[in-house]
């Protein structure tokens, strides 16, 4: 019997990173749909607003820094 190592990290196509007090960063192989604005795209990296305050939604425009 053989035992092989298998790298779990190669199993996924994209990384979703929730930046502390900041936006959602998504990078990798992405198919992007904005259903409200009817946009379809395949960017390699996007930063999405998650504070609700951006004036360039769905993208982050750093408005979260102005919250206080």
């Amino acid at each position: 019997m053989e035992r092989n190592e298998l790298d779990e990290n190669t199993g996924t196509s994209a990384i979703v990173e929730i930046i502390d007090n900041g936006p959602i960063k998504i990078s990798g192989e992405i198919m992007f749909w904005d259903l409200k604005r009817d946009i379809t795209d395949s960017p390699s990296e996007i930063y999405l607003c998650r504070c609700g305050k951006s004036s360039n939604k769905p993208y982050c425009d750093s408005s979260h820094k102005m919250r206080l």
Binding site: S13, I24, G28, M31, F32, W33, L35, S42, L48, P58
Partner: peptide
């Protein structure tokens, strides 16, 4: 199974 789908829902989550 590729690529990863990212959908912005209308007035809702991603």
């Amino acid at each position: 199974i590729r690529p990863v789908s990212v959908k912005i829902m209308v007035d809702g989550p991603v």
